[in-house]
Amino acid sequence: MSTSPIQPEQTSIQQKDPLTPNVEDLYLESYAFTTAAAIVGSVDRKIFVVLRDGRNVFGILRTFDQFANLVLQDTIERIYLETEEAQESVPKRFAETYRGVFMIRGENVVMMGELDIDKEDDHLQEWQQIPFPEAEKELTASQAAKIKEQKLKSKNLLTKGLISDFAPSDLY
C-alpha cells in the first residue's frame, strides 16, 4: 500500500483535499457507468427499497456490493394498502414494523432511492396508520386475488397462442 494520496486519473476535476480522496468522485470519474457508481452516493443516507415481492423497506444504507446486495440499518417495513377508487370517505391506510439490520440480495430489488428526510413523512399525513398484522393479512389476501386473476389471464392468453410472462413471485 502506497502512502501517497490517491490521485484521480482526470486532473481536470477539482481536488478538494488530496489527502482524503472522495470515494464518490473516484467512482464517478473512472468507474462512471457501473452499478457501484450508481449506489455509492446513497451510502449512510436514508433510502427506500422496493422488493420484487412488493415490500417497501426504508432504512439507512450502510454497505452494498457490485451485485447491488444492500445492507440497511434501522430498517422499517411499510405496507401501503392500495385504494382502487379515490374515495374521500375511505381513508388510505398504512402499517409499519421494525426490522433492524436488513441484508437484501440484489436480485430481489426493483428500485431504490434516496429519501429527503425533511419530506419523507409528508405523504403519511393523509394516511391512517393501522396495526401491521392486520395490514399484512389484507395485503396477502389482495395479492392472492391478483395472482388468481393473472393466472386466469395467462390461461386465456395461452388459448389464443399468446404467452404471458407473469411470475407469481413478482408482486411489485
Partner: peptide, 16 residues
C-alpha cells in the same frame, strides 16, 4: 402516485 406514495419525497432513483 398511489402505488408508491413515498416517491414524492425521493430525490433520485436506481431502477434494476
Amino acid at each position: 402516485e398511489s402505488k408508491y406514495p413515498h416517491l414524492k419525497s425521493v430525490k433520485n432513483l436506481f431502477i434494476r
